[in-house]
Design a protein around this nucleic acid. Sequence first.
RNA 1: GCCGGGGUGGCGGAACGGUAGACGCAGGGGACUUAAAAUCCCCCGGGCUUUGGCCCAUGUGGGUUCGAAUCCCACCCCCGGCACCA
Length: 836
Amino acid sequence: MPDDRSEWYDPSAVETRWQARWEARGTNAYSTDELRSPERPFYNLMMFPYPSAEGLHVGNIYAFTGADVHGRFQQLQGHQVFEPIGFDAFGIHSENFALKVGTHPMELIPANVANFTRQLRRIGGMFDWAHTLDTTHPDYYRWTQWLFLQLYKGGLAERKEAPVNWCPSCMTVLANEQVVSGLCERCDSAVEQRRIAQWFFRITDYAQRLLDNLETLDWSETTKKAQRNWIGRSEGALLRFPVLGVEPTSDLLESVSESGEGKTREGHLLLEVFTTRPDTIFGATYMVLAPEHPLVDALTTSEQREAVQSYREKAARMDLVARKKEEKEKTGVFTGGYCRNPATGEEIPVWVADYVLMEYGTGAIMAVPGHDERDFQFARTFELPVPRVVAGPEHQADTPLDEAYTGPGRLVNSGDFDGMEVEVGKAKITAWLEEKDLAVARVNYRLHDWCISRQRYWGPPIPIVYCDRCGAVPVPEDQLPVVLPRVEDFKPDDSGVSPLARVREWYETECPECGSDARRETDVSDTFLDSAWYFLRYPSTDLDDVAFDPEITRSWLPVDCYIGGNEHAVLHLLYSRFITMALKDLGHLDFEEPFTRFRAHGLIIREGSKMSKSKGNVVVPDPIIEEYGADTFRLYLMFLGPFEEGGDYRDSGIQGPFGFLKRLWDTVVPVADLDGDDPDPDVERKLHQTIEQVTAQVPELGYNTSIAAMMEYLNVVRAEGRRARRGEVEPLIPLLAPFCPHIAEELWARLGHDESIFEGANWPDFDPVKTQEDRVTLAVQVNGKLRGTVELPTGAAEDDALALARAEPNVARHLDDGELRRVIYVPDRLLNLVVG
RNA sequence: GCCGGGGUGGCGGAACGGUAGACGCAGGGGACUUAAAAUCCCCCGGGCUUUGGCCCAUGUGGGUUCGAAUCCCACCCCCGGCACCA
């Protein structure tokens, strides 16, 4: 019961009181036993924040509130809702900030976490604080390391060399996102490429499954689309072109064939390319190798060696991002070498050009300038021939090409295949070359294996030990965690290896297998790995002997509803799906998709742009909550616009929701002690309509319109200064409770309820009969233009409506214009009279 | 360039193909007050008007329909993502 019977609405008193009560009663916290045997479990998840030094920003609060509203709604519908929150505190972001302010992250992070926790409690989310987590805590990353070991054992983790962006001034590896048009985003120095041995997860093995399963998921369509694009499936063929004049040494054979077969033909080395247009092979007039391609040296003739060499060096110096700028002019160098086009039998020159990327396909292409825009541009630049092999509906076989033609049509200048439609030609030509063992149909994906190595300090050490005798040896599970040591000088340096490589007493160890001297892996893992499995950990944080308990996991997962930002549409969500699938295949889970339903929230805009420190348009939430209370702030944020689209934040706008809560208080408090008398019939009808609308819209995240409906209802209750009856306002409280949990609790208690409103299935039912109007206003149109309205009983007959309409002077006047030709009657809505 | 999502009053936004602008902000007027705040009431897309009404209006131009913000076609603009992926 409320102990403070204040007559006026004092948000901070109400909110402090209820937050203390939830805490004392454990309203939102589950015991381990409760987690083991839920009856109607609902796992309500939101993306956990990175605990920055600035504290929670409005964008965080917006996302969390939207998710919390959904969770509280489910709770009021009788589900047991598990709504955890935690902290994603590892990573380059924290590390750079720590370097900047000169405080060690091991001190910075706990302070930030404490501040975030205070703010998160203040906004009134139904978080289970007994099951929170922090990815930087050894109790958590021990299991992140365990996860690495499971993938390693399952053959899904491997070490290989790969190019990375390197900033020579910051002396560190940069992610692609940190390179802005070839320059380091922080210091503007030119970024270069380095090759470093790193750990990869074989996510590409799962490409097709990741793509196929999307069909089964209830996710925002935009998110699914982003994943499809990222996976980038394309169907085509691997084609093999005999290389002329090159001795097929065993070294070369080692490096050329991706498909692992048919490396030579009649003494010729075969060059493999991937194409989606095998139908255009008769138009392949030259070949292009990526500068890094292993065959470049072998193909280059002595006359060309110097030019090729300098071109390759230039390409190597360029960063990976600037390489991919499309506006860039096409550049390249002739190697001096030739291949034979297996379709035409012609000898065609082999070039090196940076528009061909080593990481896609085989790093080599057959160039068909007539029917590929890039090849066309290149051919133009270097004055290479551009034959036509596809004719569109308006073309002849000899119609010249002044741009690449990529549309549909039939094959021309293609020997026996002339006249075939492009799609037919693809299959026929592939089959023809397959017979000669020069082709194999192939699906290629844009998706790359996931590089999880970071040459940085602030992350979980990868649990591997290198032994001269045994090679790379996984750290035994019972020796986890491999604790990240406290290192005062954690600044990255020019060596290209992690700062941990400077900590001899840490990396020197003994081989777990043979006991001889060995060295720990000094790279740490990607932050995305921390967040790729955190939802599995939440319900099991009470347990320290497993990553996640099988029984608890079966009860609560997969996640019923996940809400977060679409900026994670690809990486985080794709990695989480991959890890879940891998864990299922490895026997640790019995489901393979982690998030049954996912919705992306919109962005909050202020003064025309996204809130950011540099724009100076950020809103600091604490003073607003101080002044108006968390309930008002929550309500305002949810009222701004459709949750999935975001909204425009205006400082003065908060007055609307604040006034609404004050009026609600003033309406309910005076009637709280009265016995329930029957609602006024008109008000009751509106009440049932409101319940119907809110019940339908809240689960669909239609928050702004639900709030508008409640405002409208309160306006009806208070119309012309009338005093509410108890039965009119009591059902409104649970409708509002997901948005404004504190005031809802307070008013619920004042209405005489002893238990928390969230402790029972208190969502009200509506009676469809009671939502029905008995009289309606019918719009009357003449020739489609509104000329008046008439009021009549619901479901009135057309004749009655017509008679009434004719009696309307303004309608009658317009009917004089001619003869009534047609009557369109939509019962209870509209009558349209067509005259002419 | 490609893929999403959008263009509706001064502003945020509502509208199963059926009275465009719900709900709210801002603004204007009034009541209460010595005054202010708070609260309450009224007005609030534009133009014309004999105050009965009439016309225009949902990015632009066409179309379908008795009727289009909503469906179709073409185009313009804004936001977000991807971008030499063969």
